[in-house]
Structures are given as structure tokens and as C-alpha cells.
Amino acid sequence: MMHRFALVAIGALALAACGSKVEPPVEQIVLREPGQPAGAAPAAATDLVAAGKAAFAVCATCHAVEAGKASGIGPNLNGVVGRKAGALADFGYSAALKQSGLTWTETELDAFIANPSGKVPGTSMAAGAVSDAERRKAIVAYLASLTP
């Protein structure tokens, strides 16, 4: 028994005695100090597609848009306009969406984004409703611009 205590105690001492080894950043890019003004905010995009891209930021957590990139939490939306709903082989759609019979025209996309579970009850898209018509229009324009 005593043997074991001694080992533990020595182990603890050895750890305590280890010299410090500080590993500094390999690269540190300092852009600004906190509290300093961030500079002029980028002007709100006037171009509809650019505005749509900005508004899409929160959607991008789930939806990839790069051609050929694997679907993630949601399906890849590259080329979604004109596609049949539930068409990607690499994404596990809800039965509701697969059986919806929808084809994603810009009008249908707009209606879906306005109220996903209203448009397709049972969809697994649990968030992402966009109530503002202008923002929806921009997001749809952005999606329409994404082609392989």
C-alpha cells in the first residue's frame, strides 16, 4: 500500500517540477484593438445578389453552396433553382419534402423560405424562416445565381 502512495506523491512532485514551455503563436495578425472603432461598416449592398449573399450568412451554417461540395446539415443549394425538391442523393430529406412534388422555382423557394413548415408540413428545416419579403427576394436571387 505504502508503495503506491509514494509513487503517487512522486508523480505529483515530478509534474509540479516540470519546466514551463510557453508556445507562442506561429502567426499573429492584429487588425484592431478592442474598443477601437471598426472603421466604416461596409455599405449595405445595393446589388440584389450581393444583398442576398449577406443575408444568407445564417443559412450557410447548414447549407453549402459550392458546386460539388457535400451536403451538410441541410442539402447543398448550388443549382437549387429549377431542381426537383428532394433530389440530391447525398442528403437525407424528410419524407414530407421528398413527397412534396415541388420543383424549386423562384416563386416556390420564396414561399418555402417565408414559412418552411407551412409550405411543407413535416420538413426537417427547423429554422430559417425569413419574414421580410425584400430579404427573401434577395436570398432567392442569390440562390438563382449559384450554378455549377
Binding site: A55, A57, V58, T61, C62, A126, A127, G128, A129, V130, S131, D132, R135
Partner: peptide, 14 residues
């Protein structure tokens, strides 16, 4: 709503 995936812009006037 899931606030992690709902933009604050959605809350305008609400």
C-alpha cells in the same frame, strides 16, 4: 424559434 439560426433582422418590429 431557434434563435441560433434566426437572424436578428427577422426581429425588426417584432
Amino acid at each position: 424559434v431557434r434563435s441560433c439560426s434566426t437572424p436578428i433582422g427577422e426581429a425588426e418590429g417584432r
